Computed example of a mutant assay.
Amino acid sequence: MNARPTPSQAYAKARALTDHRASFAKAALFVAGIALSALLASQAFANPDRWQREGWSTDFTQATVDLGEIMDGGPRRDGIPPIDNPSFIPVSEVEHLNPLDPVMSFTHNGETRAYPLRVMTFHEIVNDEVGGMPVSVTYCPLCNAAIVFDRNVDGEILDFGTTGKLRRSDLVMYDRQTDSWWQQFSGESITGSYAGTALTMLPSQLVSWERFAEANPDAMVLEDPLNFRRPYGMNPYRGYDTLAQPFLYNGPFPDGIAPLQRVVMVRHGDTEFAISTAKLAEEGSFEHDGVEVVFTPGQASALDSEIIAEGRDVGNITVTMDGEPVVHDVTFAFVVHAFEPDLEIIQ
Rank of each mutant, 00 (worst) to 15 (best):
I345M: 12
P99Q: 05
D179W: 00
D322W: 01
E156T: 14
G131I: 01
V221W: 06
T296V: 05
I147S: 04
F339N: 02
P116S: 10
S204G: 09
T331Y: 08
D159V: 09
P102D: 07
G33P: 04
V119A: 03
I70S: 09
E95Q: 10
V293Q: 03
S186V: 05
V94I: 11
V207S: 04
R262P: 02
A114V: 05
W51T: 00
G110P: 02
A35Q: 11
A41E: 11
G323N: 15
G251M: 05
Y139T: 08
E292F: 01
N235F: 02
P5E: 07
A28C: 11
T112P: 05
E287F: 00
N235A: 05
N47H: 15
C143N: 11
P86M: 03
E223M: 07
V31G: 04
P134F: 05
G161K: 01
I147R: 03
E95Y: 00
A114L: 14
R312P: 02
H337E: 10
V327F: 06
L260S: 07
E210W: 00
Q205K: 13
H328D: 12
G155V: 07
E93Q: 15
G298T: 04
T200Q: 15
W181Q: 05
D270M: 06
P5H: 07
F273V: 08
P116M: 09
Q347K: 15
C140F: 01
N235W: 03
F30K: 13
Q299F: 00
L39Q: 15
R168Q: 13
R4H: 10
L117A: 07
S37E: 10
N235V: 01
R238H: 09
A219Q: 07
P252S: 15
A46F: 07
H20F: 01
Y249E: 06
R151Y: 12
E310P: 04
D270C: 01
K13A: 11
I345W: 10
I34C: 06
R76H: 04
A219R: 07
A32T: 09
V119I: 11
L171V: 02
A195Q: 07
S204A: 13
R168A: 10
R4D: 02
M1L: 00
Y240W: 08
V335L: 10
N47K: 14
D159E: 14
G131D: 09
A215L: 15
S37N: 11
R53H: 08
P102G: 07
C143E: 12
H288D: 15
A274E: 09
T320C: 06
E306P: 01
I308K: 04
N227T: 14
L67V: 13
Q184L: 13
L343G: 12
